[in-house]
Design a protein around this nucleic acid. Sequence first.
DNA 1: ACTTGCCTTGACGTGGACGTCAACGTCTAG
DNA 2: CTAGACGTTGACGTCCACGTCAAGGCAAGT
Lengths: 131, 131
Amino acid sequence: MRIGELAQRTGTTTRALRFYEDQGLLQARRSANGYREYGEDDLQLVKEIQTLQTVGLTLEETRPFVECLRSGHETGDSCANSIEVYRRKLEEADALLARLGGIRGELAAKLAAALARQAPDPCAVPDSPRP
Amino acid sequence: MRIGELAQRTGTTTRALRFYEDQGLLQARRSANGYREYGEDDLQLVKEIQTLQTVGLTLEETRPFVECLRSGHETGDSCANSIEVYRRKLEEADALLARLGGIRGELAAKLAAALARQAPDPCAVPDSPRP
DNA sequence: ACTTGCCTTGACGTGGACGTCAACGTCTAG
DNA sequence: CTAGACGTTGACGTCCACGTCAAGGCAAGT
């Protein structure tokens, strides 16, 4: 199939596919007129890339998976390099979750404090009620 | 104080401070030679911006806080606009946490599945043990 | 012949918060 | 007088995953 069809079947754009090729993630044969020609394996490969992107991998990080697939393995994560990326990303996700959780807490505290100042709790005891 | 000192006392760079000025977040008087001259209130303001950045606000989102401070309020979050930003960011944080939690789960599952394929659990029952 | 729709390469734009020059003026110490 | 440490503006670079033209080639239908 040509690039337009591949884009359509993967729900992406031709621009993205050419970009993947630029990055060496996708390689297309060329037909006589210079058009890129793809096979079903390329479809699979693009889908793999997309799946990995949705779980937070950068394009660069999908490279081991792509190479794994190209080296004949059934799945992109059958290789040690891919597994390693999984581990790294899992750690990153945990770190990010921790950080974000902390931030969420700080935000909530700030909001609560601001609201308290804005409309002081009528039951609360202020600093100096009667000087 | 001049820009270098302000940068040092806030732990940032002169470039950042000039950038804040470009964005209209910081306004400096100029001394006779054209140097920017800052006061203690500016120090406070920069610190406020930094604190807000650490809890995930973009520079643009710190604007209401800055304006609130400049309009004479004691804290940047004494104004309705600032409170509104708090609320929005809190929602964003929750959404992000949910998404990231999902992603983390998917990643963990993928890793587990890959490891299982790599070195199958000796106690597990594969699809077709005896054809 | 002409339009339409696909394809090609190349090059610049996007957003966010600055970093990093360049080329120059200013102030202070020796 | 001069070196060095500060300051000034302006403009381009960074990262990432493309978007958005521009300018043209190729194939098929009318």
